[in-house]
């Protein structure tokens, strides 16, 4: 079985978010980049399929050479090979088209994307790729079991869980729950050494249609200071929430 895990290179969850160039560009100064957390849950799930069913796990990212360290990390975690599509990822539609070109050359049975990246939070690439390829698609996926071509998966919905059946080939949107945080694989020295020998192919981009552009960033307005209420005077809090904030 061939598994493709799509990886986004994102700022660490603790990063301070700042912008430069008149708020037109994200300030990468001092920011550490990590595997998008939702993608990392998916990668670990893929490695389990490799260990149990001898699946071949390929990781792919769409981006410039600065994304290669996280691909090496994916290889150290256990992926068999890595692909970087050399393209400046500005728009979800265009990224899905780049991935589609790879998927048409190779034949993947299972494609795992994170449910969304934690930088642009678009949540669009997985679904777009599935539709472009004509594959099944399940997002917010918290469990997947394979039996031959049959797929049984669970999806988190508002206020509950839905159980779905489908078949390969399929694209899933991974999130926490697909594996637990404590299951995430931390690369060991052997993995890191092996990763240096594993293939990391760079593919040229294909023509794609850019349907959106990000022009300007803005930080939320600075918050006024908190109004403290004495714990002995809870009526005041109720009055503030009712009369001032008007939320109760």
């Amino acid at each position: 079985m061939n598994v493709l895990v799509c990886i986004s290179n994102v700022p660490d969850t603790t990063s301070k978010i700042n912008f430069i160039d008149n708020d037109k560009l994200f300030d990468t100064n001092g920011v550490q980049f990590i595997i998008n957390p939702n993608d990392e849950f998916g990668l670990t799930r893929a490695i389990w399929l490799q260990q149990k069913d001898q699946a071949i796990v390929t990781v792919v990212t769409v981006g410039d050479i600065s994304c290669e360290p996280i691909l090496r990390k994916c290889l150290a975690i256990g992926a068999n090979k890595a692909v970087r599509i050399d393209y400046n990822a500005l728009d979800g539609f265009a990224v899905a088209e780049q991935l589609k070109s790879l998927c048409e050359k190779e034949s993947y049975d299972l494609i795992i994307c994170g449910r969304e990246s934690i930088d642009y939070n678009g949540g669009m690439v997985g679904g777009m790729l599935a539709q472009m390829l004509g594959f099944s698609y399940i997002t917010n996926c918290i469990s997947i079991d394979l039996n031959g071509n049959e797929v049984e998966a669970k999806r988190e919905i508002d206020g509950g869980i839905e159980t779905l059946s489908s078949s390969l080939p399929i694209v899933i949107g991974a999130q926490k729950g697909l594996v637990e945080e404590s299951d995430l694989i931390i690369p060991n020295m052997r993995g890191i050494m092996q990763a240096r020998q594993k293939p990391l192919d760079v593919l040229a981009s294909v023509n794609s249609s850019v349907k959106s552009s990000v022009d300007q960033f803005e930080k939320p307005p600075v918050k006024g200071s908190v109004k403290l209420v004495d714990p002995e005077n809870i009526d005041e809090l109720i009055s503030l929430l009712h009369n001032e904030a008007k939320v109760i």
Binding site: V214, F217, K219
Partner: peptide, 13 residues
């Protein structure tokens, strides 16, 4: 964007 740490203006084309 950035999980509510910022906003961006997006042009839809």
């Amino acid at each position: 964007c950035f999980t509510n740490k910022a906003f961006n203006n997006t042009t839809l084309k």
